[in-house]
Write a protein that binds this DNA or RNA. Sequence first.
DNA 1: GTCTATACCTCGATAGAC
DNA 2: GTCTATCGAGGTATAGAC
Lengths: 207, 207
Amino acid sequence: MATKTRENPVAVESDSVTRESILLGAARLFRHHGYAATTLREVADAAGIKAGSIYYHFESKEQILAEVLDKGILSVIEAVRQRVEALPPDAKARDKLAAAIEGHLWGLLHHGDFTSANIRIYGQIPLAAKNRHRKIRREYADYWDALLDEALRRGELRPDIGTTISRLFVIGALNWTVEWYNPQKGSFEDFVKQITTIVFDGTFVKE
Amino acid sequence: MATKTRENPVAVESDSVTRESILLGAARLFRHHGYAATTLREVADAAGIKAGSIYYHFESKEQILAEVLDKGILSVIEAVRQRVEALPPDAKARDKLAAAIEGHLWGLLHHGDFTSANIRIYGQIPLAAKNRHRKIRREYADYWDALLDEALRRGELRPDIGTTISRLFVIGALNWTVEWYNPQKGSFEDFVKQITTIVFDGTFVKE
DNA sequence: GTCTATACCTCGATAGAC
DNA sequence: GTCTATCGAGGTATAGAC
């Protein structure tokens, strides 16, 4: 991930170890206590420094929030894109969506502090932070809508359910798994398989 | 809802208008800003009184939190029980679960500030508050597990997916609808029908 | 039952030494 | 690059008048 704060011509690197450590600690604290309840003294503590030192790396608490939110959604987007684009363009919609689901779950669950923080606190952050983050969320939603529209055109998706409601329901359901997924109760692969089955074919047996 | 703070023999009524107004305002503020970020001055403002006056009705901010959380989940539990128990005991599992889904969505979406506050902030509240609220959550989960187990025994539910994972996935997905449901885009009945279809039979057409 | 006034605490952020 | 010290603002909660 390249920095946004400086624009050096060569080898951009504001990613010091301390900086990353601040972000990770902040993500974990935001996830479990919320944004407002998390103090910069706690964040500093988690990173092994004192509160004042944070301001060498970040301009404000809100800037930390912005980067935590971005890291969360970008983890997911990157994993999804990677898997979907590995398929041939004419692959079946079912296979593309399965790849998207697997990618979404992988990014979500392998960066749990960032993704859970994003999901949990997005509805509660200052309006300015929300506005800044809205665009990337919109882009990710559009990506899914395109996948679902394609599936609908090919006759693979139920025509009696709108693609918008499908997308909202499915992404919401997937996102919430970060609240209850337990890696000790079976492999990630099995988990993905079960979730994908429910999303595609439901919980009931076919008649 | 009867009060918990007093135990009068007859006609328990600590539910003054002001008290209810404080709870509703607090629920809305908790929902949109989180628990820690919400100040008692704001809660008082929403109720049309001054901050100090809150302490005539509540012992502390945490007591307000506890009552908001309870109201949220109890709205849902009551609606679900009502609908399921209106069916004959030998009704098909599919019908019982449809009733449970409809009840869950009804309670959830008709008390949005309380239910959304509950869902959004549960992961972020002080540990003491979490411990106090855990029991009722467990009871509601057990209720669903019993419904799903019955459906499985009757051969209506997919045997290749555990009832625990089904319950976690379905309740999580239903809960998240409070974040995006828009009553202006179609009737509640249609909404329930579409959600129920996805949960039972999935998003794809049957082969 | 609600008010005003205030005690006491902790927050985000800044300044300047090292 | 991190520290200590501190500012001003705003938090929960309490006390006592009305």
